[in-house]
């Protein structure tokens, strides 16, 4: 059966992965290539790399950065930021990206969505929509002008699906970096409006948030950025908890299935007696 996907979003600013808080504050994390290598080793299902400085500077995608970053990426890599022409997508596909994400283009030049889908197939075109809560409803947010559009994210998603988008990435601006959990209402509105797979992002704190969004909405993938960066084996540990309730793919030898976790899904130390009796077993590296 098809598994729910646990994805990681890497927000890149001036060539550095950053922690993004509310689309306003950015704290440096490290080099994209290193983040991608580790996420791969920890068994992530998909990586979405969004370069937020490219559009800001009106620049093309940073092909060199993508080429370096993708070197050790053996899971699908979606790249967004600065794409305004089909030629940019062609070049990105030659630099190690597998799918592309359109955000500014989706708002201001929706024709590019169709053009890209006709050339690369709809499955290659991800449309990323930023949503902000206005009273009881949601509006599309333009991060460049820092203004909202008088349009509902679900409505925009539906329009862009008919123009050829193969996946919708819905990002909650309010929840970004907040650790408050996914915005279930927003995600449900978008999922109900489209038939293509939806990826949600913004607000994940731990595995419980993934379990909730997978159980209460029909998203195909849930993505997190910040919380994967700051603890060792964050992806495997998260999956160890999710898989108790929702089927996900396991990749790594360390699956943490027998480890205790606390209420916040943090890994607990094993009991002293258990540690005392523990044997060290040499794991032979699997030769492919």
């Amino acid at each position: 059966m098809l598994k729910k996907r646990v994805a990681a979003t890497l927000v890149v600013k001036d060539g550095i992965v950053v922690q993004s808080i509310g689309f306003r504050k950015y704290l440096p994390v490290g080099k994209p290539a290193i983040a991608i290598e580790f996420l791969n080793q920890w068994g992530i299902d998909e990586i979405i790399l969004l370069d937020i400085s490219a559009s800001l500077k009106n620049a093309e995608p940073d092909y060199n950065m993508i080429k370096k970053a993708s070197k050790k990426c053996y899971v699908p890599l979606t790249v967004g930021g600065g794409i305004t022409k089909v030629d940019h997508i062609k070049e990105l596909m030659h630099c190690g990206s597998d799918k592309i994400s359109l955000n500014q283009a989706a708002i201001h030049q929706p024709g590019l969505v169709t053009e890209a889908a006709l050339l690369f197939g709809d499955q290659c075109v991800v449309v990323s929509i930023d949503a902000v809560k206005m009273g009881n409803s949601y509006e599309v947010y333009d991060y460049l002008t820092k203004t909202t559009l008088k349009k509902k994210p679900a409505q925009l998603a539906k329009e862009l699906q008919s123009r050829g988008a193969g996946e919708i990435l819905i990002n909650s601006v309010d929840r970004d970096g907040s650790y408050l959990g996914y915005d279930i209402t927003l995600i449900n509105e978008v999922c109900e409006a489209v038939t293509v797979p939806v990826i949600c992002c913004g607000g994940a704190k731990n595995a419980a948030d993934f379990i909730r969004v997978f159980s209460e909405t029909t998203v195909s993938a849930a993505s997190a950025a910040n919380f994967f960066h700051f603890s060792e084996h964050s992806v495997n540990c998260t999956k160890a908890n999710i898989i108790k309730q929702v089927p996900v793919r396991l990749e790594t030898y360390a699956d943490y299935s027998g480890n205790p976790f606390d209420g916040s899904q943090r890994l607990l130390k094993k009991g002293d007696k258990e540690l005392e009796e523990m044997l060290f077993i040499r794991i032979e590296k699997e030769i492919i």
Binding site: L2, K3, R5, D45, Q123, G166, T195, V196, P197, T218
Partner: peptide, 13 residues
């Protein structure tokens, strides 16, 4: 069937 999203995206057996 309607409960299956198209494109078919993700990890499958």
């Amino acid at each position: 069937p309607p409960e299956y999203a198209v494109p078919h995206v993700g990890w499958n057996n």
